[in-house]
Design a protein around this nucleic acid. Structure first.
Length: 493
RNA sequence: GCCCCCAUCGUCUAGCCCGGCCUAGGACACCGGCCCUUCAAGCCGGUAACGCGGGUUCGAAUCCCGCUGGGGGCACCA
């Protein structure tokens, strides 16, 4: 058996989409699991929408995910070039070959004429198929069209193909298509540029791609492509078509129901290994009763045949949980990665910009330490620890209601502020001692101090342990916030 | 409209190919409880699914047919 070569072929018309990354991931997994080759090919045949900036961005997103490629525009390789716009000679050659073999023909119909045909079909409520008017043009007729100045497209002969086209899909099994329902489709535009279905076939073959895992939307394209392979005398690759990821509205994943770009997830502070683990779980469970897998385990266990057939819904809650599992593990093993994810999300919301100063980074490290297991995603440093990062404490409505209502509260907090101010070296232990003593002196339960104090210091009812949080905030900030709370309560009661 | 694909808890899925081991397993989410200065984490427990209708069979989530529902394709987009 010749070696496995898979590919992912993005169009550089935007950032790497979650759905695209998901597809790419399986092609990559398959290549890695068979010690094969993973190729990145840029499909930039639509010049109006493709840019080099997006191409770079896609590379960057893949690198972040940890999906590497053996051949591609930037690393080159024996089957290059890897950008479709640089392969035009190849398309011309094979288009000519198709023409010479009589498998394709020039079509002089204008877009307007075709639109009219389509409209007529619609009016008569029958499925539209190209009429085939140009299928058997005589040299004289062609000359006449040319004289009119018409530029022909090239169409592949398909309507009279004659036999059922069989696609052997690795995950769906045998799928049959009757060419009766297909028509002669355009493979080269009148300006000479190739269309997707054609360029794709030429590239996959000339790049010796052995397996293609792609979206279900391409299943209907497959019979068209298979006819072309046959006409050219080529063997088509093995294919597997996966259903698309859906949003919570059960529609194709879109901005409406959540972030769609890989970099959005990076900005929120997700971990690439968690995202990849989650990607796997959206298509298959390598083992029963197990959710957490390292990339190496996924590579080892991967089998195309095991991939699911139905469309998964992107479950944010599960991704978040999974990310939390990884974050907790990292907390002891490699806390710098957790800090990294937090920094990423702080940049995302503008809390950080440019290089981070060493003392600032140190402080963030301590915040992460104090927040600990509460951080499931990098952005949680903001949702749970904003009071560490900014100087304004805004009290949650519920917090005020629950813990600032007691008439004694202001007095207690005032007392606490005074005692903190007079305390010794301000560690968590010292903070605890101060509060316990205060509770004993006033013969109240420490709860009656702890909760209001937490609200005064953080604005929230939930959060890290009060004593740890006080230590990190430091004596000065604690005293100030306590006094601010006293003022606030006085003003609002 | 025509063609194609899909269908197990709210969600991701195991089981389906090779019918009985399935009174359908796990995980997320949700709801209780424990722990506790709150939250998170952790631990314990709970609710919850074979879309419907016909077959085949002693027996069907598993095989067959139909229906319904969802998705995709039918471009000089990819």
């Amino acid at each position: 058996m010749t070696s496995v070569r898979t590919r992912y072929a993005p169009s550089p018309t935007g950032y790497l989409h979650i759905g695209g990354a998901w597809m790419a991931f399986f092609n990559w997994l398959f290549a890695r699991s068979t010690r094969g080759t993973f190729v990145l090919r840029i499909e930039d045949t639509d010049p109006s929408r493709s840019t080099r900036e997006y191409e770079q961005a896609i590379f960057e997103d893949f690198r972040w995910l940890g999906i590497d490629w053996d051949e591609g525009p930037d690393v080159r390789g024996p089957y290059g070039p890897y950008r479709q716009t640089e392969r035009t000679a190849l398309y011309h050659r094979h288009a000519q070959e198709l023409l010479d073999r009589g498998a394709a023909y020039h079509c002089y119909c204008t877009p307007e004429e075709l639109a009219a045909e389509r409209k007529r079909a619609e009016a008569e409520r029958r499925p539209y198929r190209y009429s085939g008017r140009c299928r058997n043009l005589t040299p004289a007729q062609r000359a006449a069209f040319e004289a009119e100045g018409r530029k022909p497209t090239i169409r592949l002969r398909l309507t009279d193909y004659g036999e059922i086209i069989v696609v052997h899909d690795l995950v769906r099994g045998r799928v049959e298509f009757d060419p009766e329902h297909l028509d002669d489709y355009i493979i080269v535009r009148s300006d000479g540029t190739p269309l997707y279905n054609f360029a794709n076939v030429v590239d996959d073959h000339t790049m010796a791609i052995s397996h293609v895992i792609r979206g279900i939307e391409h299943l209907s394209n497959t019979p068209r492509q298979w006819v072309m392979y046959r006409a050219l005398g080529w063997t088509p690759p093995q294919v597997a078509h996966l259903s698309n990821i859906l949003g919570t509205d059960k529609k194709k994943l879109s901005k409406r129901t959540g972030d769609t770009a890989v970099r959005d997830y990076r900005r929120q502070g997700f971990l690439p290994e968690a995202l990849l683990n989650f990607f796997a779980l959206m298509a298959w469970y390598p083992e029963e009763n197990r959710e957490i897998y390292t990339i190496d385990e996924l590579i080892e266990k991967f089998r195309v045949e095991d991939l699911g057939k139905s469309s998964p819904i992107f479950d944010m809650a599960k991704l978040t949980w999974l990310n939390g599992v990884y974050m907790r593990d990292l907390l002891s093993r490699d806390p710098a990665r957790v800090v990294g994810a937090c920094v990423e999300s702080m940049r995302g919301v503008g809390l950080l910009d440019g290089p981070v100063a060493p003392d600032r980074l140190n402080y963030i490290r301590r915040v992460v330490e104090v927040l600990g297991e509460r951080i499931k995603v990098g952005r949680d440093i903001i949702t749970y620890g904003d009071f560490f990062l900014t100087d304004v404490v805004s009290y949650e409505a519920e917090a005020i209601q629950r813990y600032f209502a007691n008439p004694k509260t202001a007095e207690i907090l005032q007392d606490l502020a005074a005692r903190v101010a007079g305390a010794g070296e301000f560690t968590a232990g010292e903070a605890e001692r101060v509060i316990r003593t205060l509770a004993a002196d006033r013969s109240i339960h420490s709860r009656e101090i702890i909760h209001p104090a937490r609200v005064a210091l953080t604005g929230k009812t939930a959060g890290p342990g009060l004593f740890e949080l006080m230590e990190l905030l430091g004596k000065a900030r604690v005293v100030r916030r306590l006094e601010e709370a006293v003022t606030y309560i006085g003003r609002n009661s």
